[in-house]
Structure formats: C-alpha cells, structure tokens
Design a protein around this nucleic acid. Structure first.
Lengths: 333, 333
DNA sequence: CTGTTAGCGCTTTCAA
DNA sequence: TTGAAAGCGCTAACAG
C-alpha cells in the first residue's frame, strides 16, 4: 500500500487532519509542526492520492488529451508546447492514444478537469465526430475540425493561408506557380489547401497544368526532395513554388541546391507552416500560416475558460498570416 | 457534477448498492432490475468514477507510460502495439510526455497499477535514472536501458544484432562491408551498434576505411538516400551494406534503384529492425534484430507479472535474430 | 434478491 | 493551533 496522511500523522504524533493542512501549507498549522510533517512526508515518499483528493474537492488538475496518432510528427510540437504551457497553470496533461470515444470515456472516469481532442483525420473514425454518444459533464475542446462538432473548437483557416501565398506571388509578378502538397489521401485538412490553390489560380486566370499541382504521398522531407527534383528539371519549370509543409520545404531546398538553382533569383518559394524554424533555413523562408505561439496560447486560454466560465465558450478560427522573408522576389526574365 | 450511482438508484427506485452490483453484472441482482438500471445509466451517460473505485478496490486498471519524446517516430509503433495488447487484459494506458520523474510522480498520484518508462536518450535527464528519489510502491518497468537502473528492465542486445549481420555477410564471402547508421548525436543505443560493427570487422581482419562507417544526421529515409548515393558512386564501393534502421533502408533502396544497382547481385543489404515491413520492400530484406512481436509480448507479460507476482520480476535481455531474405547473396566477382 | 453499513484517502467545516 | 467528524463515489461484507 501507498503512504497516506495517516502514516505521516502517526509518525509525527499529530492528527491526520493536521497533516492534511500542513501539506497544503495552511496558515492554521504551527511552523514547527509543519516542518516536521513535511520532512516525514518526504522521507516516506508521500504522494497525495489524486483520486481521493478529486473525490472531495472536485478538482483533479488533470487534462486529458486525445491523441490517436502518435505516429505523426507534425502536431507533436504543438502538444509538447501545450503541455508545457498548461503546466504553468499547474495542470498536468495525460495523453491517450486510443480511439477517440474510448479515450474520452477513460478521461471521464479519471475525472479529468477538461478534455482536448485532436481528431485523427487519417484513421477516420466511425462517424461520432458530431457528438459523444452520451452527455458529458466535462468541458471538451476540439482541435482542427471546425464545424464538424457541436463542441467548442480551435481551428485555422488553411485555405486563407494558401490564398495569402498565391496572392503574394502574383503581386510579385509570378505566373507559373506550382503547389507541392498532399493531394491523394482523403485528409480533409490537406485537401482544403489544394482546393484553395486551384480556386485562386482560376480567379487570377493563371494556368493550371499537370506541372502546377504536384501530388505527394506523405509530408516528409524525402517526398519534397524527389518531387521538386523532378519538377525543376523540366524546361518549362515554374518561377515559384508553394510548399505544403515545413518538412517538404526542407526537401525542396535540397533539390534546389543540387540543381544549383538560386533562391529567390531563379525560383521563389513560399512554405506553409508559420513556425520559427522557417527563419533558420539556408534561405530564410517566406511562410504562411497561423503562428504556433498563437495556436498554443489560444488553445490553453480556451481550455482555461472552458473550465472556469459558467457559460458557453465560443469557438475560434485563427487567421493565418504571411511572413515575408528572403525566399521570394519578382521573377527574373 | 457527474452522474453517480446514487442518481441512478433514485431514478430506478432501488438502493445505490444494488446499482453498484447491477453495473458490475453481479448475479445477485434480478435480471429485470439489472436491465432497468443498465438502461437508465446509459441514458444518463454514467461513467464509473475510477478515483472512487480505486480508493476502495485498490485497482485502477490503468498503466502509466512515460513517454518523454513524442517527437520520435521509431518507438511509436511499439507503444501503439503495447497499448493494444494491454487493452486485451482490460488495462488502459495513459501517456505522459513530461520529464521522467515528474511523470512518475503524476502516475503515483493517479494510483496507476504500474508504470512503464521509455527513457529518453536524447534529452539525457538529470542523473536520476538509477532510482526514483523516494520509495515507490507501484511496480516500474524500464525499457531499453539495461543496467542503468535498479528496476526491472526490458532491453535488446543491439550489439549482438550487428554481429549477426556482419557474420552473415562474411560467411557469404563479403570483405568490403559498409555500415550506414552512425548518428552523430551521443545516443548510446545507436553508438552501441557502431562499436559492435568496428569490433567485429577487426576480429575478422577486415578493412575499416572512411568508406566503411558512414555518419548520418538522423535515422530517416532521406539521410539513407543521400548517404547511400554518395557511397555507391565511388569506384571502390562496398559489396555489402549494413543499415542501421528501417527508415534508412528505404532511402538506401531508392538510391540503389536510381543508380540501377541490382540487389543482391551487385550489392548485398542487411537492415537492422526486425519488423514485418522488411518483407514487403521491393526486395524482401534480410534483417537483424528482435522481432517487434517478441518485444511487445515480453513487455506486456513482464508488466502483468510485476502487478501480480509478489516477488521480484527478473529483467529480460532479448536476443536478436537474423532473418535471411532475398537481399543478400555471395559477392559477384 | 435487496438494502444497510463501513471504509478507502482526503478536504473542510466546526469544536475544543 | 489542533482534533473530531462528515462526506465525496464506490465496493464489499453482512443483514434482512
């Protein structure tokens, strides 16, 4: 059995309620007594039992995160940052890699104070996105699927980001623009970007050929490299490329280097994913997207409101920005 | 507030202990009553409070997994599989991405039934590998760092795997053997493999040149591709390559294809990581390592013993195997 | 079959 | 400043 306040009380020769107060640093306990109790509890390796505490105080200081896709690298940074930020507010995050509804169930049983759900686009779970089958008394926040659930949601307007990219390039004078990104899979988040690209190219009356939308199989560096190399060898190569993710961009850069193409003189490059690392690439990268800081802050803030406010908390749709760096310029003729 | 058995009891017009029995499907409750109770509880969205349950029954059916490195892809498959396997024994896994000691603390407070620790080699945490600062009453199992902790450990003999690979190639008659997989970072698990390679090459009196140990930056596909391409262009190219991971191997294969080198006629290839996917590569791959199934099974089994046995549970060092497929043959002269 | 009761570890009045 | 007592949601004897 684990160490309890009773064990400490016995050793310290005081009542267990005094121990409870001492451990929570209540002013109602003499300093000497407090010291002694703290010492003994350390010695015994005492850890307060969250279960019991939650039972009486209705607060577990625990947030459940539904994380059905451990294997995807992209959002990992996000959860790491959120975890860190919540820790500042003394919350501990717990992840579950089970199927969404099962995970939610577990978190309810654990009496978490709130649940954050990263919906798994790839696994496409059985239709229960809209609402959990039974009523839930714990606040839930969804990430990334605005409009698909009745719960509060944090999302980013991906199409807008692509628009910003195309617009920027067109303003610089580019006409032959290519988009390298996920097309094949049914991932709606990725699909949204391609659609936005096509729409905007049409709007500007720019040509869409087989060489302007480059499908890839995954969002990793190697795919970016291979696809870009193929594309850039062509004589009618584009004067500008929009890349669907940071990892892809790294690959594209390698291909560009090998072919001795200079950025931005011979080729302009805009990348999705507004993260700090864009700044540190060989060529500081012009990028579009919502900054990670903003996503993290908004998510944590919404989570806190969800737990503290009585009324409903509104969903947020974060607006992407364009950050112009050195990878874009007017096309050279 | 959440729904409790009392709420159900009231609605059903029975005592709350009858509800408790009914929910746990006790034979001591009439079928009609049981049905009614089950229905009401579903209607109300009842979820048993693990906290309260654990408080009295001393069992939370919950296993804490310390997972400090969400961002690393490799072991993700492992945890996914373990999670699945434990579910069969009705345990739920909970992950924490916090620093090890903090995570352990949380799991103790949550009264998990056991804790599984994946030690983070990259983050190299502050010296507390050896033992948790205070006594713990919950069984702990460490993965991958045999000999560094007093707790029970599951580990694989990585050096032995590399030995098997070299031995196999030497027996086939290879002399110029290269190893791709020396990560520059100080990851001890990777380092162990390089050391084993050097030792064995020396033992067989085979030459180690600058072209037999290829340093890489990470274990991913792109690194494998770039490194292999560089290596294989050389006139004095090796007749066999040992690859440090599955991902690297995929990259090496791409380079090989591009250069129109044929496997195994022109080049033999052995890969670390004994996983099913090796079978499905363009060339079914000869591989070394402990099979994932075995790792999963052993881990789960040890975890269960740790929870059920009274006495200490021994650590396990899993022996790697060599699985010969079609990617290796004697060198052609 | 069903209800009553005690108690798990803890916080929180209320008394001393 | 300390202790006693009640109660959080649940399980497990024990009585009825």
């Amino acid at each position: 059995m684990s160490v309890t306040i009773k064990d400490i009380a016995e050793r310290a020769g005081v009542s267990f309620s005094t121990v409870s107060k001492a451990l929570r640093n209540s002013p109602l306990v003499q300093d000497i007594t407090k010291h002694k109790i703290l010492e003994i509890s350390k010695e015994l390796g005492y850890q307060p039992n969250i279960a019991a505490r939650r039972l009486v105080s209705n607060k577990s200081w625990t947030i459940g995160v539904v994380w059905p896709s451990v294997e995807r690298v992209t959002p990992s940074t996000l959860i790491t940052r959120i975890n860190h930020e919540l820790a500042k507010h003394s919350y501990t995050t717990l992840l579950s890699i089970n199927e969404t509804n099962l995970a939610i169930e577990t978190f309810i049983r654990l009496q978490c104070d709130a649940i954050l759900v990263f919906y798994d686009q790839e696994r496409r779970e059985g239709g229960n996105i809209r609402s959990f089958p039974t009523p839930i008394n714990i606040p839930i926040l969804y990430y990334g699927i605005d409009g698909l659930t009745p719960y509060t949601t944090i999302d980013t307007v991906r199409s807008k980001a692509i628009e910003l990219a195309v617009h920027h390039l067109v303003e610089l004078g580019h006409q032959r623009i290519a988009y390298i990104g996920h097309v094949k899979s049914k991932d709606p988040l990725q699909y949204e970007k391609v659609v936005a690209f096509t729409d905007l190219m049409n709007k500007y009356n720019l040509p869409i050929t087989s060489e302007s939308i480059l499908p890839i199989n995954s969002l990793d560096t190697h795919e970016g490299y291979m696809t870009a190399k193929q594309l850039l060898i062509s004589t009618q190569r584009p004067t500008a490329i929009i890349s669907g993710s940071y990892d892809l961009t790294k690959g594209i850069l390698r291909a560009v280097n090998e072919l001795r193409i200079r950025i931005p003189e011979h080729l302009s490059l805009v990348s999705y994913d507004n993260i700090q690392q864009m700044e540190e690439l060989e060529v500081p990268m012009t990028a579009v997207g919502v900054s990670l800081d903003e996503i993290v802050d908004t998510t944590v803030e919404t989570l806190l409101r969800l737990m503290n406010d009585k009324g409903p908390v509104p969903s947020v749709n974060l607006e992407p920005e364009l950050v112009v760096r050195s990878s874009t310029s007017p096309p050279q003729i």
